[in-house]
Design a protein around this nucleic acid. Structure first.
Lengths: 338, 338
DNA sequence: TAGTATTACGAAAACGTTTTCGTTTTTTTT
DNA sequence: AAAAAAAACGAAAACGTTTTCGTAATACTA
């Protein structure tokens, strides 16, 4: 359809296909003047090499895949930004897939990647990923994989994460020092590595300050915002309600705000809140939201750089990189001691 | 690398390559029992067809490209969500490209798409796109293109947009009715169709209420948030400062909030604000932000559906669809009359 | 000057599919 | 029972590259 290929170019130039091809890749076998002619004609006819023919021949796609749970999420949007930056610099194309936190989706997506469509995969697991067999299979076909943020527990693999345990600890400690006695931990899925580690930090902080851990204060939320608001409203209307909320994902903090508004619960007077979040508007909220902010852009950037290192020198197998970046705790009014 | 292809499959089965291929595509030339055997073996060996070989042979990629200015932006993130939904349903893959509002990027991205890498393109133009020659070239190679939100003025082409003129009018009228006498219009680029139309609505509303249009109240901002805050701080500190702000993009509203905070200007008492925005936290801001909210998800969905209609029946050329969706004005405290 | 490098190019195979066109065997029709 | 039709499969070309190898013509070496 595009019409213009090596054959037409070579006819136009009175050269063979192979010579034209070599001229375009600047081969030493072709004289300087011929190269000039070829380049000029290629430019004139606006020749673009067919990526499928090239991919087939070279067994290379110059494409990577990014598999994430959702895109309408500041963390992942920023991470993609970082990924795209380095991919673009390398001349790579980026395929994006959304799992919508559904394991079936993740599985079939990964399976489709088996055919050689991509040279590498960046993935953040979905909430209910129980098995990682699909990923092991993919890895065994020779496709390098880098996990970021949500990584598997049961697989030796390259990862880029943040200091989730420490962040969980600090966030909880922060609430305790602000006067909270009964802190709820909000999460979306118990399977996730992030959820687990943040919760371990949460538990450790409770222990340090001699607060007994109450399993009922671990609130499993869903991906349905409306349902989450309803759930939280119930939680916060109870007699025995928590006086502090530690949200392990941004949207749960927002739902907490909505729920509190609905039942006229004052933040931070009656309820203190801190949350993992990359909201640009955190400081503009009413009240401004205290956050643990992950370096989302850098996570994307680091992951992509790690992946390209694996793609370029095929030295993976003998070494496994695990990068850990630091999140920062930003105190604002939602958790202020009064 | 992946290893398992039709040749190996056929050897394993004692069949010819062509028969295996036909069996897998459920051809009438192959007997039912042979098909069963082939399917079973393919499943067992986890066969995945090579997308490059298939793409080369069929001259089809089952891939579309999405070209947008930025991803860390609620509008575009939601639009991508809608696009992915329908692409996934169709079994298509989605390549994402970010132009970062840079025309050079947009141009080279589109050029690279010329080789047949994708079956169709969804694009929202970047702010300084002066010429659309690159897009006309691409279109002439037979690649269907659908423009969404930011569309070209000088090209007959399929588009999905919102009622920008009306929205601009209503937003401005809303500020006027709330008591504003001097309304500034904030935009990122004068070239954009959206900017233009929203501004025409703005001017029309001013005229209706006999307010003279002041060109100095049209504020050209950049993509640098920090610079924008500084610019707005200056604007709002002037003696002759505006008493109303109409932001044509979300981030400018946020910058307005930052600037106002810095110079202790009270919203909505001293300054009323309304903005195009898809912020989930609009109602939680201090004060809650009045918005024109575009149906971003639906825009993405409609665009993709339109594109696939064009890809599937190649009836483009004889008809050009232009879909217009409605935005909604949501009044909140940032523009309340007091 | 004969032999050897070097330079500049072309022919052809290969990548893994799909598809067209045989070809053989079986079934149906007359 | 002979001819025609149908069923089930295989051989091979084609898609557009890249790359290996071969081969002229020219330049250099002894």
């Amino acid at each position: 359809m595009s019409g213009i290929n090596l054959k037409k170019l070579s006819q136009e130039l009175g050269l063979s296909i192979s010579s034209v091809s070599k001229a375009l890749r600047d081969s030493y076998e072709i004289s300087a003047e011929t190269k000039k002619r070829v380049l000029a004609m290629a430019e004139k006819l606006n020749y673009q090499p067919n990526p499928f023919a090239r991919g087939l021949r070279k067994n290379k796609s110059t494409t990577i895949a990014v598999v994430i749970p959702e895109i309408a999420n500041n963390f992942f949007a920023l991470a993609i930004d970082g990924i795209q930056l380095v991919a673009q610099k390398k001349g790579y194309h980026v395929l994006t897939y959304l799992t919508h936190e559904d394991f079936q989706n993740e599985e079939s997506t990964i399976k489709h990647l088996q055919g050689g469509r991509v040279d590498g995969v960046l993935i953040s697991l979905c909430g209910d990923t129980a098995s990682v067999k699909h990923l092991i299979d993919l890895h065994q076909t020779g496709v390098p994989i880098v996990f970021f943020d949500r990584v598997p527990e049961t697989m030796e693999c390259p990862t880029v994460t943040t200091d989730d345990y420490e962040s969980g600890f600090k966030a909880t400690e922060h609430l305790i020092l602000a006067g909270c006695k009964k802190i709820a931990y909000l999460c979306v899925s118990g399977f996730l590595s992030t959820t687990q580690k943040r919760m371990m930090g949460y538990e450790a902080a409770l222990e340090k300050y001699k607060i007994v851990f109450d399993p009922k204060m671990v609130i499993q939320c869903s991906n349905d915002n409306i349902a989450n608001v309803a759930l939280l409203r119930k939680l916060l209307a109870r007699k025995n309600r928590p006086d502090g909320i530690f949200a392990s994902v941004e949207k749960l903090a927002i739902s907490t705000y909505y729920a509190s508004n609905e039942i006229k619960l004052k933040i931070p007077q009656q309820l203190k809140v801190i949350s993992f979040s990359n909201l640009r508007t955190a400081s503009l909220l009413s009240p401004s939201l205290s956050t643990i902010t992950q370096p989302a852009f850098e996570i994307g950037k680091e992951s992509a750089e790690l992946l390209f290192r694996m793609i370029e020198k095929k030295t993976f197998g003998n070494r496994i990189d695990r990068v850990v970046l630091k999140s920062s705790l930003i105190e604002r009014n939602s958790s202020v001691k009064k």
